[in-house]
């Protein structure tokens, strides 16, 4: 069953150069897809299009709902977005307040919200963060807390923009393990190809706003020529370095 579908989607900023050009792809429910490509390839724009933060030409459907003003609240309720910079995501004073922000805005009762918060924190092993101040937790904890704020909304799909940026190896591994445990449909944009290899079954390689390759993650990420032609390189774990 299709979770998201892009049909001939194009988008350009004021300058007129298309950032995304005639893009068509679909993602099935439960799939974990990696979105890779050099800087400016269009990864972030695809996410913004999917979230209705920018509007382009063509058709986008999310869970069968066409992207339009009327459906936007319902679409956003279905999608959780983990931002690259957790500081921009965690704007409330404490982790708890940040976690209840989304559910309460969507009219979830206090009791249900509290249950979700406790369940998510327990699932991620973050109970001790519940009442901590956002400015007093570490970068790794903040990234996990940002994921927790999204999970508290119980989204059907999760978008992640560079989820492993600025994390030490242990925190990075924690995030990878967490991503692998999540049952939702996931779209992960990242330059960390090792992480993509560890988390995604399918990869979409972008260049100049168009799809260059779309297929099995391992096949694409092992293709040195293809990656290098698109300003990328093999994941470190496949480079055979000593």
């Amino acid at each position: 069953m299709t979770m998201i579908e892009f049909r001939n989607v194009s988008f350009s900023y004021d300058s007129g150069n298309p950032v995304v050009a005639d893009l068509s792809f679909s993602i099935g429910r439960g799939e974990t897809v990696g979105l890779i490509g050099a800087n400016g390839a269009g990864k972030s724009t695809i996410m913004k299009l999917l979230l209705g933060l920018v509007t382009g030409e063509g058709e986008i459907t999310v869970d069968g709902l066409p992207m339009n003003r009327q459906n936007l609240p319902a679409i956003r309720q279905r999608i959780g977005f983990v931002l690259q910079d957790s500081d921009n995501q965690m704007f409330m004073p404490t982790v708890y307040e940040d976690m209840i922000f989304g559910p309460r805005n969507y009219g979830v009762s206090k009791e249900e919200t509290d249950r979700r918060v406790d369940d998510v924190l327990k699932c991620l092993g973050l109970q001790e963060l519940k009442h901590r101040y956002n400015h007093k937790i570490s970068g790794g904890e903040k990234r996990m807390a940002a994921i927790a704020t999204i999970l508290a909304m119980e989204p059907e799909m999760i978008l992640m923009d560079e989820p492993s940026t600025a994390l030490d190896p242990v925190n990075r591994r924690t995030v990878i393990n967490t991503v692998n445990r999540l049952p939702q449909t996931k779209l992960i944009a990242s330059h960390d190809l090792d992480m993509i290899l560890d988390t995604c079954q399918r990869v979409i390689l972008l260049a100049g706003g168009a799809i260059v390759a779309d297929g099995d993650a391992e096949t694409i990420l092992r293709d040195r020529e293809l990656l290098e032609a698109n300003r990328m390189e093999l994941p470190f774990c496949l480079q055979g370095r000593r």
Binding site: L53, D85, I100, R104, N105, Y106, T149, M153
Partner: peptide, 20 residues
């Protein structure tokens, strides 16, 4: 802008649900 985007994506519609 980023923060506001993050708020919008979590259902913010112009009014905060203040602490109970």
């Amino acid at each position: 802008q980023e923060l506001f985007g993050s708020m919008l994506l979590r259902g913010f519609q112009g009014e905060f649900f203040y602490a109970d």
